[in-house]
Simulated assay, not measured.
Amino acid sequence: MNPTTPDGRYVVVKGRLWRCSNPALDERERQLLVDELMNARRAVKAAKASGDPSEMRAARNRVQAAKVKLGERGPVWWDDGAPDLNRRMAKNTHYADWYQSLTVERSE
Rank of each mutant, 00 (worst) to 15 (best):
R88I: 11
A90G: 04
H94W: 10
H94E: 11
A90D: 02
E72C: 08
G71P: 07
R73C: 04
R73V: 02
K67T: 07
T93M: 04
M89F: 14
K67E: 13
L85Y: 00
P75I: 06
V63W: 00
G71C: 08
W78E: 00
G71M: 13
V68K: 09
A96E: 07
A66M: 11
V68N: 15
K69T: 04
G74D: 09
E72R: 10
M89A: 07
D79G: 09
N92F: 07
G81W: 14
T93Y: 00
P75F: 08
V63E: 02
V68D: 10
D80C: 08
V63D: 02
V76M: 06
R88N: 11
D80Y: 06
R87M: 12
G71I: 05
R87C: 13
N86C: 12
K69G: 01
A82Y: 06
K91P: 00
P83D: 09
P75V: 14
R88E: 10
H94C: 11
A66T: 13
D80R: 02
N92I: 12
P75W: 05
N92W: 14
D79L: 08
L70I: 15
P83Y: 13
L85W: 00
Q64V: 03
A65V: 03
V63C: 05
D84V: 10
R87K: 08
K91Q: 12
D84W: 07
Y95C: 05
D79E: 09
A90T: 04
E72I: 03
V68P: 08
Q64D: 03
N86R: 11
V68H: 11
H94K: 14
K67A: 05
L85P: 03
D80P: 02
V68Q: 08
G74S: 06
R88C: 13
N86P: 12
P75R: 11
N92C: 09
Y95V: 04
G71R: 13
P83T: 12
V76P: 04
V63G: 03
A65G: 06
G81Y: 05
M89W: 11
R73T: 06
T93Q: 04
R87V: 15
K67M: 06
Q64H: 09
E72G: 04
K69F: 13
G74E: 11
T93N: 09
P75H: 10
G71T: 07
H94L: 11
M89P: 01
G81A: 05
A90V: 03
E72P: 02
W77Q: 03
A90H: 00
W77T: 01
R88F: 13
V68T: 09
N92D: 09
W78T: 01
A66G: 06
T93S: 09
G74K: 07
Q64L: 10
T93D: 15
R87Y: 12
W77A: 00
P75A: 14
Q64E: 07
R73D: 06
H94Q: 12
D84N: 14
